[in-house]
């Protein structure tokens, strides 16, 4: 999987309330509607700024907080191609893979807002074209790679009828 886009940068501990506030997510299953409010409490303009394929780039513990799967879904429906962070909270990490949103664990300290990035999941590197930097990616556990390669857990189940993790 090879993805290209621009970086939108955030700090450490971006929690699921910031990604999509509880006041919206309880009302609807319409992810396109939720996507309009993604990251709103951190950057009210965020949704308007995103071009399809752009990346969210963050520090440590991205996605901490609640188990709401609306968080990775709202990010995906906002057009984000992948989330790059130094580390992820575990429920978010799992939910992202299950919903087919690539999550990339790598050193994000050298990435600045607007940098042009190429994420190459096969080779396990992020190329920062703007700064001519190659950043190694921490490989996904094989189970997760499988589910992500199938396009998420629903597609994985459609294909195999159950967990096919061996």
């Amino acid at each position: 999987m090879r993805l290209e886009g621009r970086a939108h940068c955030f700090g450490d501990d971006v929690n699921t309330d910031y990604i999509i506030s509880g006041k919206y997510k309880f009302k609807t299953l319409d992810m396109k509607e939720l996507a309009r409010h993604v990251m709103e409490d951190l950057d009210p303009e965020f949704y308007a700024k995103v071009r399809p394929g752009d990346f969210i780039v963050a520090g440590t513990n991205f996605g901490c907080g609640s188990s709401r799967e609306q968080a990775p879904l709202a990010i995906k429906y906002a057009g984000i191609g992948a989330v790059l962070a130094r580390s992820f909270a575990r429920i978010f990490f799992r939910n992202a893979i299950n919903t087919g949103l690539p999550v990339v664990e790598c050193d994000t300290s050298g990435i600045r807002p607007g940098d042009e990035l190429v994420v190459d999941l096969e080779r396990g590197v992020v190329l920062n074209r703007t700064r001519n930097l190659e950043i190694p990616v921490r490989p996904l556990p094989p189970v997760m790679l499988r589910i992500l390669a199938d396009g998420g857990l629903a597609a994985h189940f459609q294909k195999h009828g159950n967990f096919a993790l061996e």
Partner: peptide, 29 residues
Amino acid sequence: ADSHTCTYGALGCVATGVGSTDLAAAMIT
């Protein structure tokens, strides 16, 4: 499907939060 499912560990069990898709997979299988 709630992050504070870990609360039940007070009973000496393992209880953990998952997302909705994992919950669906657990319901099915």
